[in-house]
Design a protein around this nucleic acid. Structure first.
Lengths: 127, 127
DNA sequence: CGGTATCCAACACGATACTG
DNA sequence: CAGTATCGTGTTGGATACCG
């Protein structure tokens, strides 16, 4: 099963659920990954600072998100051998353009919120 | 709770879980919405054709995804009053740039898959 | 501080059956 | 054809407790 789409003169193939790139896309656009990437655009950040700035994320989910992004090569994890522990997270060369696109989408959506509200009001009225 | 990020000279604010734009972002980047938007970039499409081209999506989830995108103003639904029913889905003026960004990200990720594989191999080896 | 392990609730999702 | 309704389940995700 293949889905071919043209974007800016390029052909995009989105395969079925078993396509590996679809999994990566889901990692990057997942609930917490979007926010992690956006924050890391600001620069290196520690675990607990990420947790504080995102707000509402559990330790478990943040750790899971970070490990997945690290494994895919978007995030770099540097653990300093000190006590108490000190771990820095930052974007890799691969992660930065990803973060930029994701954050760009977030920014664009925020700009469009008035239009979205209008559309919703219109939809809800018809129903 | 506020997260400020600079992207291309703009300041992006990603608020906490109650921020309305965060919900819209999740709608647009959700599992099936990404694929629906990508396909609709190709042009108008009927319900069953969407279902066929995506592959692996249930009627329920496709309907739910389409309704959410329609309500947010990204997708236009046109029902022709004929028997058997004929319903066309297409992108709105708001939906097209959204679809372009999402599909662009999907395309970019697919390009980076070799790098992702290398990163994964490296990560898995260290563990 | 920066996690992991465990448990449990909510819900996302799919399968199936049914309808205008 | 284009859905809706209902049900069952598997995964997601939060809370809590604990560890190096």
């Amino acid at each position: 099963m293949r889905v071919s789409v043209e974007v800016d003169g390029h052909v995009v193939d989105v395969y079925d659920a078993k396509c590996p790139s679809r999994a990566v896309l889901e990692h990057v656009t997942s609930r917490w990954a979007v926010l992690v990437l956006a924050i890391l655009l600001d620069g290196t950040c520690r675990f607990s600072e990420l947790r504080r700035r995102i707000g509402g994320v559990s330790e478990k989910m943040l750790a899971q998100t970070l490990r997945r992004l690290e494994r895919d090569g978007f995030v770099r994890r540097v653990a300093h051998p000190v006590i108490p522990p000190h771990v820095d997270y930052s974007l890799t060369e691969l992660g930065e353009p990803a973060a930029r696109q994701v954050a760009g989408l977030a920014y664009w959506i925020e700009e469009q919120m008035p239009a979205v509200s209008v559309a919703r009001a219109s939809y809800d009225e018809r129903s």
